[in-house]
Design a protein around this nucleic acid. Structure first.
Lengths: 221, 221
DNA sequence: ATTATTTATTTGGCTTACCAAATTTATTGA
DNA sequence: TCAATAAATTTGGTAAGCCAAATAAATAAT
């Protein structure tokens, strides 16, 4: 018995979950095959096995979808993937755009204990370096209302989850301020005069123009 | 093509290396099969493939051994295994005896860059939590002369690599002192009166009885 | 409604990594 | 030396995951 046989199954579930999230209306055999870059015959066979395990179901109109059980499993893989991405970026200083491939390998490591400890070691992050939320151990995703920093409440813990602008200049600017997706900040003050923002980040105060603040999308922690 | 096909090959090489190190005189098909817990027919087939790749060779007397190329590859796996063990113990607070199984999964993650960064992140450790030396990126093992602390030179960086006594009391005692296999210490003084040792560990001075020192085996870094 | 196109499904095949049960080839002990 | 034992090798099979090509079924477009 090969201990890595589950990689394949996990990849099907993860891909199905990704398609579900990305609003793709009807995930059929062809769509799934394309997404996985596999032959439809292969996918058909795999879907049958997953159905037998009650991880997916095929509706009368041939739509393939996750069952609750399957979704939970998918979310646990997503959780592992995103935690490893945080590890790679925060601890090993990878760039956020370099970590996906590696996390795809790491996400298949089997150990709940490991993930629990990794989570703690990383300080229980709520988003990965791309700004995507990390499901909790029960596969729950905290539902988040993403909003521009300009409309966020004062004195609340916020996490930067997306950028309204990804020009080189803006990225370099953020880099200089040591801000990035995943950074936790708190608005301490908004200047009446020019609506500029003062935010606290790791015991450090940063001033941001209203323009900059408007391009930082945040979630309330 | 399955990206995890190499697990199998890596396991053969690693096992062969372990047998070589453990002084087993003649590694034949049977010995290797037993060590891997696989059927001899399976192993025979695998050894042929590895031979074709010039990773192992079978001598006229049927002894199976690593080629230089194979040994180098084996050492890179051992390096990964041991670095991950250090990570698990030092960073995720696993006990040294809990990490082997996990490291067996992690050692197959494919990325030289990852390992380079992990090594740096861990502070370039020279031994794993079991006291086994970590090969360098070129597959070289620093040849070490392990000796009791009592015969080690003063004012040299030392690494604890083994214990002369693994009684619960001794382990608890070391634990209290925050010493463990892998700890780096330096002898600052030996007391004339009772031959007790004063060692420095992470900017902290510790006094050890001669008895304790005699049960700590160290390598010079 | 009928053809053209897309999807779904089947069929036959491949490779890797396994195994059990012969069979052949040493090796060894008496 | 010769049978008994052990090791090596061969043979025939299994399961997982994959593919290409053929066929069937459904959908769309005229």
């Amino acid at each position: 018995m090969q201990h890595f046989a589950h990689h394949s199954e996990e990849n099907y579930l993860k891909t199905l979950y990704k398609l579900e999230v990305s609003q793709v209306k009807k995930v059929n055999n062809i769509a799934l095959s394309k997404s996985l870059d596999l032959n439809p015959a292969t996918v058909l066979e795999a879907v049958r096995k997953l159905s037998a395990k009650k991880l997916v179901e095929t509706l009368p109109d041939k739509t393939i979808q996750l069952t609750e059980k399957g979704r939970k499993k998918a979310l646990s893989i997503v959780r592992k993937h995103r935690l490893w991405e945080v590890f790679l970026v925060d601890k090993l200083a990878f760039k956020w755009n370099e970590v996906h491939k590696l996390a795809e390998q790491l996400e298949h490591i089997e150990s709940d204990d490991l993930i629990k400890r990794l989570d703690a070691f990383l300080g229980y992050p709520s988003v990965d370096p791309h700004g995507d939320p990390i499901p909790d151990e029960n596969g729950k995703l905290k539902k988040t209302k993403t909003q521009p920093l300009t409309s966020a409440p004062l004195k609340k813990q916020l996490t930067i989850v997306a950028l309204g602008n990804s020009s080189d200049e803006f990225l370099r600017y953020l880099d200089k301020l040591c801000l990035a997706i995943g950074s936790n900040i708190e608005v301490t003050e908004i200047e009446d005069f020019d609506k500029s923002f003062t935010v606290q980040h790791k015991k450090r105060l940063i001033t941001l123009s209203n323009e900059a603040a408007n391009n930082l999308f945040v979630n309330i922690l």
